[in-house]
Write a protein that binds this DNA or RNA. Structure first.
Lengths: 152, 152
DNA sequence: TTCAGATAGATGCAATTGCATCTATATAGA
DNA sequence: TCTATATAGATGCAATTGCATCTATCTGAA
């Protein structure tokens, strides 16, 4: 199997756009959250996963898989979220090392408030710029860059 | 003019993919650079811009425009690059506040070594996963999310 | 000219991240 | 059962980032 060491011009261009656009969009969303006096995007990611998980909660290592954050970042982010009473840590019965993380009512409320800003940003920055068909094409192309690639 | 506050499912999916894929790819490239004992991606971005700019160099504020890094980050990154002799700072004649940044020979060499790793990563992570035509389509779609949007 | 912004870049300090390592529990094999 | 290894999560310390502000120079209007 041949592995090329140098990327094609098309690959470089797609890469450059991906880097630049994602940086730009993240920054705009972070700014919008700050303007609203809301916590950073990373908090949303965690609260979102926990809200989806429901009453059963999630183990920290499951959050790591889902969010792709580093272990030590999750550990500390959870400490901050707990100190704000947005989550609670529950010792888990059958594994003395672990804990289950559950979102609190206040956590759900914070997530909801963040979504009004975050969702609006997505609508403006992405939804308003491409028609549905092209959004789907974009998602499909990006899915194939995922590891492992999305099958669709 | 109607501004929707809630994003469509297609917009949310494209957004989620964009966030996840860009995070994943950046992390893989950073890991590859670390494995090679090379500096982080941000150094490449700056060295690349300076190499493109040639002997004339660039002002820090031009680097800020091109890389989208925050002003204080550029200021400190340049200090680190200078302490490694990868760039040099030259006072600029017609503006006593400013300076021109020029890449050194050692800087070019470092950039070249980084590119062997970075370029290979792009080839593997992006180039090998989509054919040229789809890479171009991806770049075009991303270009329309840019601010201001790319015209092509 | 003069002075009130505006612009270029640096920096003190607090918060976050990254790295390496640590503790505690779990698990598998001798 | 005992021990070596693996896994879950936390943490000390250094480096980086973010925020606010600072200094210095420049520009334009009175």
């Amino acid at each position: 199997m041949i592995e090329k060491a140098s990327p094609s011009p098309a690959a470089i261009k797609a890469w450059a756009r991906l880097m630049r656009v994602s940086r730009q969009l993240v920054e705009k969303v972070e700014d919008a959250l700050k303007d609203g006096g809301l916590p950073p995007l990373a908090w949303y990611d965690v609260l979102h996963e926990l809200a989806e998980a429901g009453e059963g909660g999630l183990r920290p290592f499951q959050l790591i898989e889902r969010t792709l954050f580093a272990q030590y970042n999750v550990s500390r982010l959870l400490a901050r979220l707990e100190s704000e009473s947005l989550i609670e840590k529950i010792p888990v019965a059958d594994d003395g090392r672990g804990q289950t993380i559950r979102i609190t009512g206040k956590g759900r409320e914070t997530r909801r408030r963040m979504w009004t800003v975050y969702g609006r940003s997505i609508a403006e920055l992405v939804g308003a710029r491409l028609p549905a068909e092209e959004l789907e094409m974009l998602a499909a192309l990006l899915g194939r860059l995922r590891h492992p690639p999305a099958m669709e």
